[in-house]
């Protein structure tokens, strides 16, 4: 474990022993070490403080730090488990763990629910979905009339909001994704599968 010396721990606040992280996640110790290499590169891209701030996170996703984006902001907030405005290494590993092909389906469903529940009320509200649809349209430069957006929302809430109270609760979300499993596709990253390119980041311990 020469790679994870006490010096590394001082330089990387929130750094946790890879053996401990591996025991709590679907990752092997080698995979956690590989993720540490990736983490180091992202966390030093703007400010070399051993933590990932929002700007660095956006830069890693879009290769453009200036691009404000609703989705990236939301994913960052969910990765920021301790609500400190930054992502430390243990947050990074635990959050990416949800995207592991072997992670629990329940965890993926839970994370995806939080992703859409923008204001964390415990419900996915129509207004939140509309906000995301509009953001998506802006991003893709696709134009849809407001009536069309409302039609899409009507159709969506007719299918998902079983008790028709205008918002989707966790139980309704579970049912909805069970009928529409393709919605969970974004919750699995093939890169995290054992033996794939994640291992390009493996740090060579001498």
């Amino acid at each position: 474990m020469g790679c994870f010396s006490s010096k590394a721990r001082r330089q990387f606040p929130g750094h946790e022993d890879p053996v401990s992280l591996a025991s709590q996640t679907a990752f092997t110790v080698s995979e956690v070490e590989a993720l540490f290499e990736l983490y180091k590169s992202i966390s030093s891209s703007v400010i070399d403080d051993g933590l990932i701030n929002k700007e660095e996170f956006q830069l890693a996703i879009f290769k453009n730090r200036k691009k404000e984006n609703l989705f990236a902001n939301r994913i960052f907030d969910l990765f920021d488990v301790k609500r400190k405005g930054v992502i430390d290494f243990s947050d990074f590993v635990r959050s990416l763990n949800v995207f592991h092909p072997n992670a629990q389906l329940e965890d993926k469903i839970d994370f995806s629910f939080k992703l859409y529940d923008l204001d964390s009320t415990g419900f996915i509200e129509r207004q939140e979905v509309k906000q995301m649809l509009i953001a998506l349209l802006c991003e893709s430069e696709m134009k849809l009339a407001d009536e069309t957006i409302e039609l899409i929302l009507d159709k969506t809430f007719l299918e998902a909001d079983v008790n028709q109270d205008g918002k989707i609760d966790k139980y309704e979300w579970n049912n909805f994704v069970s009928k529409n499993p393709s919605l969970l596709k974004i919750m699995t990253l093939p890169y995290l599968r054992y033996g794939t390119s994640l291992f390009y980041f493996i740090y060579r311990c001498d």
């Binding site: 990736l38 996703i61 979905v129 998506l136 991003e139 893709s140 929302l153 969506t156 529409n180 596709k185």
Partner: peptide, 25 residues
């Protein structure tokens, strides 16, 4: 066609939801 899809299908196709970029240099 967007109208034939539900809102979540549309949103989940957004490039911004794709975390794969994290692994690409």
């Amino acid at each position: 066609k967007p109208v034939s899809m539900n809102a979540f299908e549309l949103i989940s196709r957004s490039k911004s939801f794709n975390l794969e970029n994290l692994f690409e240099k």
